[in-house]
Design a binder for these strands. Structure first.
Ligand SMILES: [Zn+2]
Ligand SMILES: [Zn+2]
Ligand SMILES: [Zn+2]
Ligand SMILES: [Zn+2]
Lengths: 163, 163
DNA sequence: TTTAATTTTGTTATGTTATAACATTTACAA
DNA sequence: TTGTAAATGTTATAACATAACAAAATTAAA
């Protein structure tokens, strides 16, 4: 977890077989839910798939309109319930500054990522860094603040858009 | 900028003369705007005051309803324009995970804070840490990502609510 | 000091994101 | 198979934010 993970990196540049990313993610999600004794229902699985199929963070209402196209009229709670489930299970992340969601490529381990969001091409890469994690933890500990959840998002230009 | 600043700390605990905090912040804002050649109009100043008067991050529509109470019917753009101005000038910060705003107590220097948000009492403290800043900067630099804006928010329990 | 340009504010309407509340169906186990 | 819990459907509404254009106020120029 020390660099851009391959999937996220590919979002902003070279070609890759993204279908493969999606199926891999869905398979892993399926296994994970079984091992946890929770139900990855068809609706939830389809929402996860739609999030993964998007090459950018996707909003709840974009998911909704895709669902409506394929399954007829669908209402917001359907989507939000699925997204909530996926968030709880760590299968997706929410990007607060975009009100949007991205798939997580290592849902098995609990973690807080750093999201690099390109203001030009719109891609969002999830990266991890132990030094950052440690620095934040030490600060909150020192202050007597009991941290439970963290969001770290950086807006700027990705390598592809800087050139 | 190494610890909880006094103002923020006081939000979650002991009593303090918050009126004093507000007037200090308003005075500093006034000076800063003059020195920058931008106009802190009555409307903008009043919104800044309302944000400061709140002991918690305050939402745009809460500001709106206070304005409406005192000045008669007011529309959302009035508030959002003022908030946008204040954000541009660094006089307030936006907490993305709450869709809410807090006053900044050192608007003269450009900076990115770490916001500690108590899920129990709702207070939000802005703190700063050079180690964190450096760790994030190094990571983005290494990845060739040109960072422009950073959002770092931690949810949990503040010292007062932990006890 | 009138005029012109620019900035700020007013106003109406609408777009976007998210949840409450309650009914129905489905899955699963006793 | 029947009771229970979980998941989904449905309707309505809440909460957050901006587009577009008109009017007023400020500033700069003539
Ligand atoms: Zn992740
Ligand atoms: Zn880019
Ligand atoms: Zn600040
Ligand atoms: Zn607290």
């Amino acid at each position: 977890m020390e660099n851009f993970d391959t999937v996220s990196l590919s979002f902003c540049g070279g070609t890759h077989d993204h279908k493969n990313c999606v199926t891999t993610a869905l398979d892993e999600a399926e296994q994970l839910c079984i091992s946890r004794g929770v139900r990855l229902t068809d609706a939830r699985k389809r929402v996860l798939e739609l999030v993964w199929e998007s090459h950018h963070p996707i909003g709840a209402y974009d998911v909704l309109s895709k669902l409506s196209q394929e399954s007829g009229k669908t209402a917001p709670p359907t989507v939000y319930r699925a997204l909530d489930f996926l968030l709880e299970q760590g299968l997706i992340h929410r990007i607060e500054s975009l009100n949007a969601f991205v798939g997580c490529s290592h849902p098995a381990e609990e973690h807080s990522g750093l999201f690099l969001i390109c203001k030009d091409c719109g891609c969002a890469a999830e990266v991890h860094d132990a030094t950052i994690d440690k620095a934040i933890l030490e600060k909150t500990d020192t202050l007597g603040f009991k941290a439970e959840q963290r969001m770290l998002e950086v807006r700027g230009l990705c390598p592809d858009c800087t050139a």
